[in-house]
Write a protein that binds this DNA or RNA. Structure first.
Lengths: 150, 150
DNA sequence: CCGAAACCATTGGACATCCCAATGAATGCC
DNA sequence: GGCATTCATTGGGATGTCCAATGGTTTCGG
């Protein structure tokens, strides 16, 4: 009876699961999970980490700047800055040059937290890419970057 | 003043955004968006497509089988099968050999929908990988597969 | 044969994420 | 001096993921 499988839909699921979009989704999910677990002990989520990094980079930043740089929703930025401020990692001050804005600044504690989280994130990515050697990792990153920019 | 940037946290955001997990997340998000948009016109979401493909592959399947094969939550499978059944793409029948189970089967209409969606998903992935030539695509897939399996 | 344990589909709800709309205060432009 | 724009904030809706509880059914051990 094994007539070489003439059915048109044979292996439909397998076909789906070898799609680049599916594979990238699985890898991304695993990467997200690894990094999220890694920095969870520091009390931060991925988006908090990104906000903290952006603030550390750019000196005093208005929240609207964070919205633009990170592509997050303004509402969510409010909540994240709330969280970071309560944790003493950033400070919200009124901008004297434009009273609409909040000047968000990193605290020394925030810098320390950022460095620890960056290291943890690096280690998590090390685990993610464990199956690949350095040359292969560079190739993967280069290809992903080109897909992303395209 | 340009003292070669001795600050420890300089470029923290950029560093974050060159992490494999971040890059994979962006590519995955774009792939998801492309495929979701592509099959949205057929009235299906990605998970519906996966369920439909699994049912088409495995002949009559119990919903619990779908839970195991796809890793979805049982509740969500119920909702997806509801949707697919209302659209006339699958049929739910009581399994005569085990009255606890529903035997879920694809309809001819469901097979047609599945083929169209599979083609649309392929085209979307073609767009996703447009920046890469065939050789590079194979390399990317191979590397992603190894990261995924590791 | 019978009761305990496991399995099945379904329902309800918690929780986080993502996106959009509306508000009040403040600024810049003409 | 008005008027459109920007800012931070609040509220809410849509979606996705996950866990718990239920009632019906089968299986297995004794």
């Amino acid at each position: 009876m094994a007539q070489s499988d003439p059915l048109p839909a044979a292996g439909a699921l397998a076909r789906l699961q070898t799609l680049p979009s599916w594979l990238a989704g699985r890898v991304a999910a695993r990467g997200h999970s690894l990094v999220a677990d890694a920095i969870a002990g520091e009390g931060l989520k991925l988006h908090h980490h990104a906000v903290l990094a952006a603030v550390a980079d750019g000196g005093p930043l208005a929240q609207a700047d964070l919205v633009r740089r990170l592509g997050f929703d303004a509402k969510d930025v409010v909540l994240m800055v709330n969280h970071l401020e309560r944790a003493g990692l950033v400070v919200r001050e009124p901008d004297p040059r434009d009273r609409r804005k909040n000047a968000v600044t990193v605290t020394p504690s925030g810098r320390g937290k950022l460095e620890r989280c960056a290291r943890l994130a690096d280690e998590a990515n090390e685990r993610l890419l464990a199956p690949l050697d350095p040359e292969e990792r560079r190739t993967l990153m280069s290809l992903l970057a080109r897909v992303h920019e395209g």
